[in-house]
Amino acid sequence: MYQVLVGVDDDVARARACAREVTNLPGGTDEKTVTLLHSFTEDPGDRSAADVESVNAAAESLDDHGVRYELLESGGDPAQSILDAAKEVGADLVVVAGRKRSPAGKAIFGSVSQSVILSSNRPVMVVGTETRE
């Protein structure tokens, strides 16, 4: 059995892509457990991760494939939240979605995926949203 942590942002297509790649990992559905993490960067008020459309899209995809999952939420810096959660749940693999940004965009806004890759002591899978041919 292995534990997979998936960092889910607000983009539905990226969330579905991450879930799709998790279901494509080797082994049967009974051999993996997934934690879907959404990090709120602003005060969510009464909302929880279960209220986020992208989280629901990823969860639905995992449900469709019979993969067990749990929801986790945090606040603050998304990259640090992913790293902290990976340690907390004992993740064997961290999955994040990448997105195209110009070099200037990366320098100005940073990159959650890049921060996780460079700071993690666990394997990190970066998923794209384009469909494979």
Rank of each mutant, 00 (worst) to 15 (best):
F40V: 01
L72M: 14
G75Y: 06
E60Q: 14
V34T: 15
S74A: 10
G45M: 01
D77E: 12
F40L: 02
A57R: 12
T41F: 03
G45N: 04
V55D: 05
A86S: 15
H65T: 09
V67D: 02
A50L: 06
E70G: 08
A79D: 12
S74E: 04
D77K: 14
D51I: 00
D64H: 13
R68T: 13
H65K: 15
E70Q: 12
E88A: 07
E42W: 08
D84A: 13
G45D: 03
A79F: 09
N56L: 15
D64Y: 06
H65G: 05
V55M: 15
S81G: 12
E53N: 08
E73I: 06
D64G: 15
V67Q: 10
F40C: 05
K87I: 14
S81F: 08
H65P: 01
A50F: 05
E70N: 10
D84P: 06
G76L: 12
L72R: 15
V67M: 09
V55R: 01
D84R: 09
T35I: 03
L72P: 08
E73M: 06
V67R: 02
D43V: 00
D51M: 00
L72I: 09
E70S: 11
E70R: 14
D46I: 08
S39M: 11
D43M: 00
G66L: 08
S48R: 15
S74C: 01
A59M: 08
I82D: 00
G75R: 15
S61A: 15
A85F: 08
A85Y: 11
E42R: 11
G75W: 04
D51H: 09
S61M: 14
D64S: 09
